[in-house]
Design a protein around this nucleic acid. Structure first.
Length: 562
RNA sequence: UGGGGAUUGGUGCAACGGCAGCACGCUACGCUCUGGACGUAGAAAUCGGGGUUCGAAUCCCUGAUCCCCAGCCA
């Protein structure tokens, strides 16, 4: 069997969509992305975005980007641009951008229709009364005393609500369903509430009533001819309502399908918590590279393709472990990032924590140009020249005065290879007043130029280096998880209690000369260390590099086990 | 407590009545001018209890556990 079903990626949503097409329930596919413009996009949003985008695309359908701007007190234009920017960065394409507010007029007409049908009424109860009369999980609610007022009166009151004749909170329009329904969403849900201030970011002060999510969202789907309304698990309980409205109205009925949202360990995802991190200055902003927002990941150097691939590899299900979704291991995300970057990153040498090395038998003032491979995974990336001289910097971690077992790097008497250059052997160590190692003296073997010994002898280790005379200073920002616990909320009265004090470490070191003219956003692999991305804070002559993700480090693992 | 959803190695997903598989992680080993990449091998799971069936992760019954819902938020 080699038909489409075996080669197409399959999951329960794609299967459902295919079925709907086959059965004739729909003869086209249209999905919608319904972000509320009240915050920046984070990695959790990417899953929903990709599902909506790809399922439309795979079926020759359309994706509509519709901002769910039904609550002026929470929303702002600032976010609509940011959301579009992030979505575009992911490669998502839509046929048009709409706003829930585009449909306020039609939606109001539909509400009037529902009132005329006797399916909606104006309730004069206070918010407290509405809440008190909703009942509980185990007890039915009480019907509002205003529930059965005449259609004409409802029409009049609704009209006057719309015209701003009543203060906020004084009345609402409610669907007339069933106050004893076991699903609380069906206990006469509120359709419209009165909000005078602030003005709406698109409709200004025209409207004094604003639709609730359940009323607006589903009807907007219907109005736009959306076939599949794909959303997260917590909306499962809203589905009966989602279907009830168009049923009463006799309008087009889209199909809602729910899936598990995506959460990440060692971080938090809720807008409220992310906002606290920013406002309490625990991070430098929404784009602090430690944040799970897309702008932060972009700044840190995560390629959009890697994020998309991560989400794809995670799959789709209806499993809910936490917060209506599944918790992905950040190590998996990081592996997707490495996998992507490994194939396309130019290699460079950078010394993050420098240690001076003097090659005693190397001629003073001599400079050689060594050929270095730009990317062993990509022959087309070519080579470059790297200057070599008598005094170098190597990584502090690459030298030990007394080596632990299995340590192959530089130590007194041991020979290692300087990448793309010579074999060197450690002869002696010079210490400062405090007894710290100030410099290491070595001898080199001129016959090993280029990295191989003619006599065939081997070294167990190759280390990176930068020529001191040619080195350019650089700042390195090394990141770790923002929180010390996989689930920062678990067992804490405040999630900030388990902030990782070492989530950002700043180091000052050196890079090879080529890197002096780096531009923000440029990505490299610093050999043996990790992938780095030039930060916008870089200034000419002093680049700043963000650690995107480190290389896997077998030695660190061996050492840690002790 | 009422309603809704779920439960497969440590994690995330497959297997849709017929040999429990894939990826990440983990453990060895090999290869290597990156202790990276790559390659080989390995450990590791069907929530429990009943039943139906030649045969059950899959169907039925039952129990447990986890997630979501009582906004005029979305």
């Amino acid at each position: 069997m080699t038909d489409e079903s075996t080669i197409m990626p399959t999951d329960f949503i794609r299967e459902a969509v295919a079925e709907d097409l086959k059965s004739g329930r729909f003869n086209y596919v249209r999905t919608r992305l319904p972000p509320e413009p009240n915050g920046y996009l984070h990695i959790g949003h990417v899953k929903a975005f990709m599902i909506d985008y790809l399922i439309a695309k795979e079926n020759n359908g359309e994706l509509i980007l519709r901002f769910d701007d039904t609550n002026p007190v929470k929303e702002d234009v600032e976010y609509v641009d940011a959301i579009m920017e992030d979505a575009r960065w992911l490669g998502i394409q839509w046929v048009k951008v709409t706003y829930a507010s585009d449909y306020f007029g039609l939606l109001y007409e539909w509400a009037v229709k529902l009132v005329k049908l006797g399916k909606a009424y104006v309730d004069d109860q206070s918010p407290e009364e509405v809440s008190a009369n909703r009942g509980t999980f185990t007890e039915p609610g009480k019907e509002s005393p205003y529930r059965n007022r005449p259609v004409e009166e409802n029409l009049d009151l609704l009209e006057r609500m719309k015209n701003g004749e009543f203060p906020d909170g004084s009345r609402v329009l409610r669907a007339k369903i069933d106050m004893a329904h076991p699903n609380l969403n069906m206990r006469d849900p509120v359709m419209y509430r009165i909000i005078h201030e602030p003005p709406h970011h698109r409709t200004g002060s025209k409207w004094k009533i604003y639709p609730m999510y359940d009323w607006a969202h589903g009807q907007n789907d219907s109005m736009e001819g959306v076939t599949h309304s794909l959303c997260s698990l917590e909306y499962r309980d809203h589905r009966p309502l989602y279907e009830w409205f168009p049923e009463q109205l006799g309008v087009f009925k889209p199909r809602q399908i729910e899936f598990a949202r995506l959460n990440l360990n060692y971080t938090v995802m809720s807008k409220r918590k992310l906002r606290r991190l920013v406002e309490e200055k625990r991070v430098s902003g929404w784009d602090d590279p430690r944040m799970p927002t897309l702008r932060a990941m972009r700044r840190r150097g995560y390629p959009a393709e890697a994020i998309v691939e991560f989400v794809r590899r995670m799959g789709i299900s209806t499993v809910a472990t936490s917060n209506s979704g599944v918790i992905a291991d950040v190590a998996f995300l990081e592996e997707c990032v490495r996998d992507d970057l490994n194939k396309r990153s130019l290699r460079r040498m950078a010394v993050i924590k420098p240690l001076k090395v003097v090659i005693d038998n190397y001629p003073e003032n001599q400079i050689e140009e060594m050929d270095a491979v730009n990317n062993p995974e990509d022959p087309n990336a070519g080579t470059r020249k790297v200057p070599f001289s008598k005094v170098l910097y190597i990584e502090q971690d690459d030298f030990r005065e007394t080596p632990p077992p299995k340590y192959y790097r530089l130590f007194p008497g041991n020979e290692v290879r300087l990448r793309y250059a010579y074999f060197i052997k450690c002869a002696s160590v010079v210490k400062n007043d405090k007894g710290e190692i100030a410099e290491v003296h070595c001898t080199y073997d001129p016959a090993t130029r280029g990295g191989d010994a003619p006599d065939g002898r081997k070294v167990k280790s190759t280390i990176h280096w930068v020529s001191a005379a040619h080195a350019r200073p650089a700042e390195f920002r090394l990141y770790d998880h923002l929180f010390t616990k996989e689930d920062p909320e678990e067992g804490e009265d405040d999630f900030l209690n388990c902030l990782n004090p070492n989530s950002l470490q700043i180091a000052h070191g050196y890079v090879e000369p080529l890197l002096a003219s780096t531009e923000a956003g440029d990505r490299f692999q610093f050999e043996r260390q990790g992938y780095f991305c030039a930060d916008p804070d870089s200034v000419p002559g002093r680049p700043v590099f963000n650690l995107t993700v480190s290389l896997k480090d077998t030695w660190a693992k061996i050492e840690k086990k002790r």
